[in-house]
Amino acid sequence: MAFYQHWRNVPKRVWSWPSFSPAEIACRGTGKILINEDALNRLQDLRTILGKPMIVHSAYRSPEHNRAVGGAKASKHMEGTAFDISMANHDPASFIAAARKAGFQGIGTYPRSNFIHIDTGPGRAWGDPFPARASSFALDQAPARERLADSRTLKGGGAASIGTVGAAGIEVAQQTLAEAQGAIQPLIGHLDTLRWLFIALALGGIAITIYARIDDWKRGRR
Protein backbone atom coordinates (compact mmCIF):
# COMPACT_ATOMS: atom_id res chain seq x y z
CA MET A 1 0.00 0.00 0.00
CA ALA A 2 1.06 3.57 -0.58
CA PHE A 3 -0.29 6.79 0.92
CA TYR A 4 -0.15 10.27 -0.57
CA GLN A 5 -1.23 13.58 0.93
CA HIS A 6 -2.95 14.45 -2.34
CA TRP A 7 -3.88 12.45 -5.42
CA ARG A 8 -1.93 14.87 -7.62
CA ASN A 9 1.25 13.58 -5.93
CA VAL A 10 0.74 10.02 -7.20
CA PRO A 11 3.55 9.21 -9.70
CA LYS A 12 2.30 7.97 -13.04
CA ARG A 13 4.60 4.96 -12.84
CA VAL A 14 2.78 3.56 -9.78
CA TRP A 15 -0.74 3.90 -11.18
CA SER A 16 -1.68 0.62 -12.90
CA TRP A 17 -5.48 0.81 -13.26
CA PRO A 18 -6.34 2.31 -16.67
CA SER A 19 -10.12 2.47 -16.16
CA PHE A 20 -9.80 4.73 -13.13
CA SER A 21 -7.88 7.83 -12.12
CA PRO A 22 -6.30 8.78 -8.77
CA ALA A 23 -8.87 11.58 -8.46
CA GLU A 24 -11.73 9.04 -8.59
CA ILE A 25 -10.21 6.93 -5.81
CA ALA A 26 -9.03 9.77 -3.55
CA CYS A 27 -10.86 11.08 -0.48
CA ARG A 28 -13.63 13.43 -1.55
CA GLY A 29 -13.12 15.68 1.47
CA THR A 30 -9.32 16.03 1.65
CA GLY A 31 -7.82 14.79 -1.62
CA LYS A 32 -5.68 12.27 0.27
CA ILE A 33 -5.32 8.82 -1.23
CA LEU A 34 -4.43 5.37 0.07
CA ILE A 35 -3.56 2.98 -2.74
CA ASN A 36 -4.53 -0.59 -1.87
CA GLU A 37 -3.23 -2.60 -4.82
CA ASP A 38 -5.29 -5.72 -4.13
CA ALA A 39 -8.59 -3.81 -3.90
CA LEU A 40 -7.83 -1.76 -7.01
CA ASN A 41 -6.88 -4.89 -8.93
CA ARG A 42 -10.28 -6.35 -8.09
CA LEU A 43 -11.98 -3.09 -9.06
CA GLN A 44 -10.25 -3.19 -12.45
CA ASP A 45 -11.27 -6.85 -12.84
CA LEU A 46 -14.88 -5.88 -12.08
CA ARG A 47 -14.74 -3.15 -14.73
CA THR A 48 -13.51 -5.74 -17.25
CA ILE A 49 -16.25 -8.22 -16.33
CA LEU A 50 -18.99 -5.58 -16.63
CA GLY A 51 -17.67 -4.20 -19.89
CA LYS A 52 -18.96 -0.69 -19.19
CA PRO A 53 -17.88 2.37 -17.18
CA MET A 54 -18.31 2.55 -13.41
CA ILE A 55 -19.19 5.78 -11.63
CA VAL A 56 -17.36 5.84 -8.28
CA HIS A 57 -19.25 7.87 -5.66
CA SER A 58 -16.79 7.18 -2.87
CA ALA A 59 -13.58 5.18 -2.49
CA TYR A 60 -10.85 6.01 0.05
CA ARG A 61 -11.89 8.20 2.99
CA SER A 62 -9.48 9.85 5.37
CA PRO A 63 -10.45 9.32 9.04
CA GLU A 64 -11.47 12.97 9.41
CA HIS A 65 -13.67 12.87 6.33
CA ASN A 66 -15.17 9.54 7.38
CA ARG A 67 -16.23 11.14 10.67
CA ALA A 68 -17.60 14.19 8.87
CA VAL A 69 -19.89 12.07 6.66
CA GLY A 70 -21.02 9.79 9.51
CA GLY A 71 -19.18 6.69 8.27
CA ALA A 72 -18.76 3.58 10.41
CA LYS A 73 -15.90 3.78 12.91
CA ALA A 74 -14.21 0.78 11.28
CA SER A 75 -15.25 1.64 7.73
CA LYS A 76 -13.44 -0.27 5.00
CA HIS A 77 -13.26 3.02 3.10
CA MET A 78 -10.48 4.11 5.47
CA GLU A 79 -8.50 1.03 4.42
CA GLY A 80 -8.90 1.78 0.73
CA THR A 81 -10.75 -1.51 0.22
CA ALA A 82 -14.30 -0.20 -0.27
CA PHE A 83 -16.05 1.51 -3.15
CA ASP A 84 -19.53 2.98 -3.57
CA ILE A 85 -20.64 2.53 -7.19
CA SER A 86 -23.57 4.27 -8.89
CA MET A 87 -26.28 2.08 -10.42
CA ALA A 88 -27.20 4.77 -12.96
CA ASN A 89 -25.79 2.64 -15.78
CA HIS A 90 -25.89 -0.85 -14.24
CA ASP A 91 -28.45 -3.50 -13.40
CA PRO A 92 -28.06 -4.07 -9.61
CA ALA A 93 -28.49 -7.85 -9.70
CA SER A 94 -25.97 -8.27 -12.52
CA PHE A 95 -23.59 -5.87 -10.81
CA ILE A 96 -23.66 -7.79 -7.51
CA ALA A 97 -23.01 -11.09 -9.30
CA ALA A 98 -20.05 -9.57 -11.15
CA ALA A 99 -18.72 -7.97 -7.94
CA ARG A 100 -18.70 -11.33 -6.15
CA LYS A 101 -16.95 -12.89 -9.12
CA ALA A 102 -14.25 -10.20 -8.90
CA GLY A 103 -13.68 -11.01 -5.22
CA PHE A 104 -15.79 -8.42 -3.38
CA GLN A 105 -17.58 -10.11 -0.45
CA GLY A 106 -18.98 -7.11 1.42
CA ILE A 107 -22.12 -5.90 -0.38
CA GLY A 108 -24.32 -3.03 0.82
CA THR A 109 -27.33 -1.92 -1.21
CA TYR A 110 -28.70 1.64 -1.09
CA PRO A 111 -31.59 1.91 -3.57
CA ARG A 112 -32.73 5.34 -2.33
CA SER A 113 -29.32 6.79 -3.16
CA ASN A 114 -28.96 4.47 -6.19
CA PHE A 115 -25.55 3.00 -5.34
CA ILE A 116 -24.02 -0.26 -4.13
CA HIS A 117 -21.17 -0.51 -1.63
CA ILE A 118 -18.58 -3.21 -2.32
CA ASP A 119 -15.50 -4.12 -0.27
CA THR A 120 -12.94 -6.89 0.12
CA GLY A 121 -13.82 -7.58 3.75
CA PRO A 122 -15.52 -10.71 5.14
CA GLY A 123 -18.62 -12.01 3.37
CA ARG A 124 -21.68 -10.05 4.52
CA ALA A 125 -24.61 -8.16 3.04
CA TRP A 126 -26.90 -5.39 4.23
CA GLY A 127 -29.33 -2.77 2.98
CA ASP A 128 -32.65 -2.74 1.16
CA PRO A 129 -33.23 -4.60 -2.12
CA PHE A 130 -33.40 -2.63 -5.34
CA PRO A 131 -36.84 -2.69 -6.98
CA ALA A 132 -37.13 -4.90 -10.04
CA ARG A 133 -36.28 -3.20 -13.31
CA ALA A 134 -38.06 -3.78 -16.59
CA SER A 135 -34.91 -4.89 -18.39
CA SER A 136 -31.17 -5.02 -18.05
CA PHE A 137 -29.23 -2.10 -19.39
CA ALA A 138 -27.90 -2.39 -22.92
CA LEU A 139 -24.19 -2.20 -23.64
CA ASP A 140 -22.85 1.29 -24.05
CA GLN A 141 -22.86 2.64 -27.58
CA ALA A 142 -20.94 5.53 -29.03
CA PRO A 143 -23.14 8.65 -29.06
CA ALA A 144 -24.75 9.17 -32.47
CA ARG A 145 -23.77 12.28 -34.35
CA GLU A 146 -26.49 14.86 -34.73
CA ARG A 147 -27.80 14.87 -38.29
CA LEU A 148 -27.22 18.29 -39.79
CA ALA A 149 -30.70 18.37 -41.33
CA ASP A 150 -32.22 18.02 -37.85
CA SER A 151 -30.07 20.60 -36.10
CA ARG A 152 -32.10 23.37 -34.48
CA THR A 153 -29.07 25.62 -34.52
CA LEU A 154 -28.62 25.23 -38.27
CA LYS A 155 -32.33 25.68 -38.91
CA GLY A 156 -32.40 28.86 -36.88
CA GLY A 157 -29.23 30.12 -38.51
CA GLY A 158 -30.65 29.34 -41.95
CA ALA A 159 -33.84 31.24 -41.24
CA ALA A 160 -31.85 34.20 -39.96
CA SER A 161 -29.69 34.20 -43.09
CA ILE A 162 -32.68 34.00 -45.44
CA GLY A 163 -34.46 36.77 -43.60
CA THR A 164 -31.42 39.04 -43.58
CA VAL A 165 -30.68 38.55 -47.27
CA GLY A 166 -34.35 38.93 -48.17
CA ALA A 167 -34.74 42.16 -46.22
CA ALA A 168 -31.61 43.59 -47.81
CA GLY A 169 -32.84 42.57 -51.27
CA ILE A 170 -36.21 44.25 -50.76
CA GLU A 171 -34.54 47.45 -49.62
CA VAL A 172 -32.44 47.53 -52.76
CA ALA A 173 -35.55 46.89 -54.88
CA GLN A 174 -37.36 49.74 -53.12
CA GLN A 175 -34.58 52.14 -53.85
CA THR A 176 -34.55 51.06 -57.49
CA LEU A 177 -38.32 51.43 -57.88
CA ALA A 178 -38.28 54.80 -56.19
CA GLU A 179 -36.16 56.04 -59.03
CA ALA A 180 -38.42 54.47 -61.70
CA GLN A 181 -41.52 55.83 -63.31
CA GLY A 182 -44.55 56.77 -61.28
CA ALA A 183 -46.62 53.94 -62.75
CA ILE A 184 -44.95 51.42 -60.49
CA GLN A 185 -44.78 53.58 -57.36
CA PRO A 186 -47.75 51.69 -55.72
CA LEU A 187 -45.56 48.57 -55.50
CA ILE A 188 -43.18 50.25 -53.11
CA GLY A 189 -45.69 50.07 -50.23
CA HIS A 190 -46.14 46.32 -50.72
CA LEU A 191 -42.40 45.83 -50.87
CA ASP A 192 -42.02 47.69 -47.59
CA THR A 193 -44.43 45.23 -45.96
CA LEU A 194 -42.50 42.32 -47.46
CA ARG A 195 -39.24 43.77 -46.15
CA TRP A 196 -40.61 43.80 -42.59
CA LEU A 197 -41.71 40.18 -42.99
CA PHE A 198 -38.15 39.22 -43.90
CA ILE A 199 -36.84 41.18 -40.91
CA ALA A 200 -39.26 39.27 -38.64
CA LEU A 201 -38.04 35.99 -40.16
CA ALA A 202 -34.43 36.96 -39.47
CA LEU A 203 -35.19 37.88 -35.85
CA GLY A 204 -37.09 34.62 -35.37
CA GLY A 205 -34.18 32.63 -36.74
CA ILE A 206 -31.76 34.38 -34.39
CA ALA A 207 -34.07 33.64 -31.44
CA ILE A 208 -34.25 29.93 -32.37
CA THR A 209 -30.47 29.73 -32.64
CA ILE A 210 -29.93 31.37 -29.24
CA TYR A 211 -32.55 29.12 -27.58
CA ALA A 212 -31.02 25.98 -29.11
CA ARG A 213 -27.54 26.87 -27.90
CA ILE A 214 -28.75 27.65 -24.36
CA ASP A 215 -30.82 24.43 -24.24
CA ASP A 216 -27.86 22.33 -25.45
CA TRP A 217 -25.64 23.96 -22.84
CA LYS A 218 -28.14 23.17 -20.07
CA ARG A 219 -28.37 19.54 -21.19
CA GLY A 220 -24.60 19.26 -21.11
CA ARG A 221 -24.59 20.51 -17.50
CA ARG A 222 -26.97 17.81 -16.23
Rank of each mutant, 00 (worst) to 15 (best):
Thr120Glu: 04
Gln105Glu: 07
Ser94Gly: 10
Asn114Ser: 12
Ser136Met: 11
Arg145Gln: 04
Leu139Cys: 04
Asp119Ile: 00
Gly169Glu: 00
Val165Leu: 13
Gly166Trp: 06
Ala134Val: 11
Asp91Leu: 12
Lys101Asn: 12
Ala134Ser: 06
Ile96Cys: 04
Gln105Tyr: 00
Gly106Ser: 02
Arg100Lys: 15
His90Met: 09
Thr81Phe: 01
Ala99Pro: 02
Ala159Gln: 13
Phe130Asn: 03
Asp128Lys: 11
Ala138Val: 00
Phe130Tyr: 14
Asp150Lys: 14
Ala144Gly: 11
Ser86Glu: 10
Lys155Arg: 15
Ser136Gly: 12
Ser136Glu: 13
Ala97Asp: 11
Gly103Gln: 15
Ala168Val: 03
Phe104Ser: 08
Arg145Asn: 00
Gly158Thr: 15
Ile170Val: 06
Arg147Trp: 08
Thr164Leu: 09
Gly163Ser: 12
Ser161Met: 09
Phe83Trp: 01
Pro143Glu: 11
Ala160Val: 09
Pro131Glu: 11
Gly123Ala: 09
Ala97Cys: 07
Ser136Trp: 09
Asn114Gly: 06
Ala99Lys: 01
Asp119Phe: 00
Phe115Gln: 03
Gly123Asn: 05
Pro92Ser: 08
Ser161Tyr: 11
Asp119Leu: 00
Glu146His: 15
Ala167Asp: 04
Arg112Tyr: 06
Ser94Ala: 14
Asp128Asn: 02
Ile107Gln: 11
Gly166Met: 06
Glu146Leu: 15
Pro111Thr: 05
Ser113Asn: 05
Ala93Ile: 10
Ala168Leu: 05
Thr109His: 03
Gly127Phe: 01
Ile118Val: 07
Pro122Ser: 06
Ala82Val: 03
Gln105Gly: 02
Ala138Phe: 02
Ser86Cys: 07
Gly156Gln: 14
Pro92Tyr: 06
Arg112Ala: 12
Thr164Met: 07
Arg133Leu: 15
Phe83Gly: 01
